[in-house]
Structures are given as C-alpha cells and as structure tokens.
Amino acid sequence: MAALDVDGVLNPDGDGINERVRALRMSAYERHQYDGPGPDGEPVSGYVLVNPDHGMWLRGLLAARVDVVWATSWGEVANSFLGPLLNLPRLPVVGVGPYSGLVWGRSAKRGPVGTYVAGRPLLWLDDQLGGKDLAWAEQRTAAGVPTLLIRIDPAFGLTPDDQACAEEWLARLPAWGVA
C-alpha cells in the first residue's frame, strides 16, 4: 500500500518551483486555482501546483496493483479536486484529520495511517515525518511487515529520485514473500 500526502508532496512550496525542478529534469508544475473547503471545513482560496508527471506515475502504481490511498488533511477534496487534474480514479482516504504536523518527533498522521494499513506493507510518502516514525518503520520491517517512509522535500515535491526509491522498494516485496 502507498499512503500519499498532498501538501509538500504533490503540491510543493510554490515560489520558484519550476526553476528548482528544471535541474531535476522534471516537467513544469501547473498552477490551478482552488476555491472550496479547507481541512477544517472553512472556505479557502488559493492556488495548487500540480505536476502531470505525478499522475502518470501514480496511475502506473495502480496498474501494477499497488493500493494507493490519500493520507492527507485534504480528505475527500483530494479526490474531487486533485484526482481529475492527475487523471486518477477515486482513491480511498485515510482519515487523518485537519492537522498533520509533527508532535514530539512523530507524525500526527501515524496513528490513523498505522491503523488503516494494519499488517500490510506500507510505502508512505510525506514531507512531515519525524525520527520516531522512522524507528516505527524499522520495527515494522523487522517484524516482517515491510515499511518504507520517504520524506519528501517540500521545496521540490515528489521527485524522480523519490519515485525511483519507491519503485525499487516495491520491486523487492516479492522477495519478502509479499505479492
């Protein structure tokens, strides 16, 4: 299973993003206006940066039978707003609540994500992962439940190197006896 955050991962920090990613040979981000409910239900208005290459990569994961879920404070808005922009089907949503920062070295999302994934292998892509989350991933892997957390740099968003790391890890799952 791949758990996917939005802000910082698919929607990077905006100022100068296309200049930064050009060096990584990434396609340019497209700017889209969003007017609707925020994570707390209150109206928000602003722009969202979306890279169409991310949609292609995520569709490739889905075609390879990887369960992809939203693990973001965006909740269902990820499906209604980002899904069409990335040409994605409706994805399951892990209810992580309206806030998703770090608390004492641990992602506020870890409880909901851990409960949702239960004993399944986990690839988690997020920009806010703490040291305790990495230790948790190591403990899960040592217990026979392969787990990889990839901390995404929010200044770049999801990069080809992040994608390659995820793909290499996913390719090793059969060697761990996981189909």
Score class of each variant (00 low, 15 high):
M1D: 11
V6M: 05
V6W: 06
D7E: 14
L10H: 02
L10Y: 03
N11D: 15
P12W: 02
D13Q: 07
G14L: 05
D15R: 13
D15F: 09
N18I: 01
N18P: 01
R20Y: 10
R22W: 04
R22Q: 12
A23L: 08
S27A: 15
A28F: 03
E30W: 05
Y34P: 08
Y34R: 06
Y34V: 03
G38R: 02
P39L: 01
D40R: 01
D40L: 01
G41Q: 13
E42C: 03
S45D: 04
S45F: 06
L49T: 04
N51H: 09
P52T: 05
D53K: 07
H54I: 07
R59W: 04
L62I: 15
A64F: 07
D67I: 01
V69N: 04
W70P: 01
W70I: 00
W70E: 00
A71Q: 02
T72V: 03
T72E: 04
S73P: 07
S73E: 06
E76I: 01
V77L: 01
A78C: 08
N79R: 01
F81L: 08
F81E: 06
L82S: 04
G83V: 10
P84Y: 02
L85K: 15
L88M: 00
P89H: 02
P89E: 02
L91E: 00
V93K: 08
G95I: 01
G95R: 12
P98D: 04
Y99V: 14
S100G: 14
L102W: 06
W104H: 08
W104E: 13
G105Q: 12
S107Y: 06
P112G: 11
V113W: 07
V113Y: 08
T115N: 08
Y116M: 04
V117L: 14
V117W: 12
G119Y: 11
W124A: 11
D126W: 10
D127E: 11
G130R: 13
K132R: 14
L134E: 15
L134Q: 11
A135F: 12
T141V: 04
A143R: 14
A143N: 14
G144M: 09
T147Y: 07
T147H: 07
T147E: 02
L148N: 10
R151G: 12
I152Y: 10
P154C: 02
G157A: 10
G157D: 11
L158R: 00
T159I: 05
T159A: 03
D162E: 07
Q163F: 00
A164M: 09
E168T: 15
W169K: 09
A171Y: 05
R172T: 15
R172E: 15
G177K: 10
V178R: 15
